[in-house]
Each structure stands twice: as C-alpha cells, then as structure tokens.
Design a protein around this nucleic acid. Structure first.
Lengths: 141, 141
DNA sequence: TCGATATTGTTTGTACGCAAATGGATTTTG
DNA sequence: CAAAATCCATTTGCGTACAAACAATATCGA
C-alpha cells in the first residue's frame, strides 16, 4: 500500500461513517426527550395520525420500513395501546390500522418535544446552515 | 389540534426521518458494491488496519460502537478470517486484535470500491454541495 | 498496602432493518 | 374465464445497536 492510498481513505471522514454517527447522536437526543416510544415508533405513529387510516404495509411504505420491520413496530405500538385494528371489508388481506384516542393525546404532547429534538440535533449549525443542511439531505434521498 | 399545529409538523421533513432514509440509501449502495462484509464490519476492519493493533473495546470506541456491539462485529470478522487474536502481556483483561494478511488484501481491494460508494451516495449533489454537506455533517457530531 | 473505583470483555433482553420464503387474497392479462 | 402476476401479512435468519448486569483484572487514593 502506498502512502497516498493510505491518506486517501480515512474512515473518520467518510459519508457513511459520519451519517451513522449523526444518526446515533440524534437518537440519543430523542431518548433524552421522549421515554415512551422510539424514533421509529414515533415515525410510524405520526404517519398514522397524518393518514388517519391505512393498512400495515402501506404505513410501512409511507415511513420507509419494509413489511417485516413495520410489523414489529405496529405490534409494539398496538401492545402499548396506540393502534387499533379493523378488518378491511373490501380486501380480506388487509388489516386497517387507526390511531386510538390515547395515540391522539400522545400526538399532541409529542409535537413540542419533537421540535425540541430537532432543535437540539441541529444546534451545532447556524440557522442558515440548518436550512442548507436539510435541503442537501433531502436531495440525497 | 389546530390546523397550524398540524402543518407545523410533517414527518417527511424532519431531520431524524431524513437522516434515517439517507442512511438507508447509503447502505443499499454499499451492498450493491461490496458483498463480503457490511458497512459496520467495514468500519471496524478499516479502523483496525489504521491502528494496526488494539483491544476490542478500544476498537469499539474508535468506531463509535459500544462494547456489546463491537463484540459481535469482531466475532464475525474473526470467523471470516480477517482478525487475529493475541494476549496482552501487560493486561490480562485485554484481547489484542490485529488484521490478518487476508484482511490487508481485502483492505487494498476495498479502497477503490469505497470511493465509488461515496461517489454514488453523494451523486445527487454538485461538487460544491458535497463539500458543504460533509462539512455540516461533521459539525453535527 | 488495601479498599474503592474503573476498565475489559461477556451475556441477556429489547428493538430496528433487510433478505428470502410462505400462504392466502386480489388483480391483470392472455 | 382461467392462468399468471401482484399484493398482503407473516415467519425465519442474520446483523447492528444499546441498556443493564456480571466477573475478572487494573489502577488510584487514603
């Protein structure tokens, strides 16, 4: 291995490594602010509140989780009493999901906390940098 | 819930959600280019090559993995023949890790692929945007 | 020196996250 | 219409990721 090749690749400056660590930090901040549910459960629950009613797989698609993952997440949210099941009269394969009353209460409570978490996550950046960062991040998807 | 509160928080524009999806995309690109090992294993292996020799927990710290996580990663890399164990004469608690000859070969092979993955991940951004993105991302850690 | 404290590696339990396979229901298409 | 293709939910297997607890070893402070 040449010296140039060595300097050429330093783990600590790689996108993947940086994104993994940024994610770690965000999740740590999340659990500092919110006890009851995880970031993933939060995403699923909020999306369900946005959509009011969907099937399990559709909720998974809306939150970028595959069928196996969303199943576990929904199971846990249901166990905690945040999701209610109903049969779809038009499609016997589907399980229609709805947020429970408790879920709506949680939704209200969590919105301000979610803003705090966003703020804390982006705190190392100036207002202008925050906007740029979010714009570029969106482009990456 | 007021209408303003509703519009106030849309999941798809939140940092956490965006970072999770950007990470998903990066990992998908990674496995498109590299079959043998995962992004996490890659990080551990490369850091070990950078350090030449360390203990398990120290390697974990250097790659931002806790003790339980790095244990599994090291176990899998050892099973694949990339990591060699030695006893630390100065500290009986420690296991000194070293990359095997095969690991060094892999290291060489993977550097160009790693560059391709970085390039593909950042492809949606212009050169200038890529620099800005990496700078801001670093600040977030 | 010796007792408190810290560190190393390990295990257990819980929670994502994806690939691949399955069985049942629905839709498409020839 | 019937076969093929698709979609739904589920399961299994593997790989991160972290919290909490543990025994063994090192180190530090009184």
């Amino acid at each position: 291995m040449t010296n140039s090749a060595k300097k050429d690749y330093v783990l600590d400056t790689q996108v993947g490594f940086l994104m993994r660590r940024a994610n770690q930090r965000h999740q740590a901040l999340f659990s500092d602010h919110i006890d009851d549910i995880t970031p993933t459960q939060f995403a699923a629950l909020f999306k369900l509140c946005e959509l009011r009613e969907t099937s399990q797989n559709a909720l998974g698609r809306a939150t970028a989780m595959d069928a196996a993952t969303i199943k576990g997440v929904v199971d846990r949210l249901r166990r905690k009493g945040y999701i209610h099941n109903a049969a779809d009269p038009n499609d016997q394969r589907r399980i229609l999901l709805r947020p429970t009353a408790t879920a709506w209460e949680l939704y209200e409570t969590l919105i301000p906390k979610a803003h705090q978490i966003t703020k804390a996550t982006l705190a190392p950046l100036s207002k202008g940098e925050q906007t740029i960062f979010l714009t570029l991040l969106s482009k990456l998807i």
